[in-house]
Amino acid sequence: MRAGEMRNTSLHPEGMGGGGWRHRLGNALKTTVLLAGLTALLLVVGERLGGPQGLIVAGFFVVVMNFASYWFSDRIALAMHGAQPLSYAEAPWLHAMVERLAARAGMPKPAIYLLPTRTPNAFATGRNPEHAAVAVTAGLMDILDRRELEGVLAHELAHVKNRDTLIGTVAATLAGVISYAAQMLFFFGGSLLSRDDDEDGLAHTLGNLGVLLVAPIAATLLQLAVSRSREYGADATGAQLCGDPDALADALLKLERGAELMPYDRAPATSHLFIVNPLSGGAIMGLFSTHPPIPERVRRLREMSALTPRSPRAWHSAWA
Rank of each mutant, 00 (worst) to 15 (best):
R146L: 05
A132T: 11
H155F: 01
L185N: 01
G210I: 05
A182F: 07
F187P: 01
K161W: 12
V211C: 12
V152G: 10
H159G: 00
A215V: 12
A203R: 15
A182H: 08
A203Q: 14
L185Q: 01
A135H: 01
L206T: 14
A138Q: 12
F123C: 05
A175L: 01
I143N: 00
F187I: 05
L114E: 09
F186H: 08
V134K: 09
E130W: 14
A181V: 01
V136H: 06
V152C: 07
V160D: 10
S191W: 02
L193H: 10
F187G: 02
G168R: 01
L192A: 12
I167G: 00
I167W: 00
T117Y: 07
R147P: 01
P120Q: 03
V170M: 14
H204D: 14
R146M: 08
L193K: 10
A135N: 07
M141C: 02
P129D: 06
L157M: 07
D196M: 14
P216M: 13
V160H: 02
D200S: 13
N121A: 05
L153I: 07
D164F: 05
Y180G: 10
L202F: 15
G210L: 09
T119A: 13
V177W: 04
I143Q: 07
G207S: 15
G126Q: 11
E148V: 09
D198H: 06
L149Q: 09
R118V: 09
T119D: 07
D164N: 03
R147I: 04
A154T: 04
Y180V: 05
Y180N: 03
H204L: 15
A181D: 01
M141R: 10
D196R: 15
V160E: 06
L174Q: 13
T173L: 03
Q183I: 14
L202A: 15
G151Y: 09
N208T: 15
T119N: 14
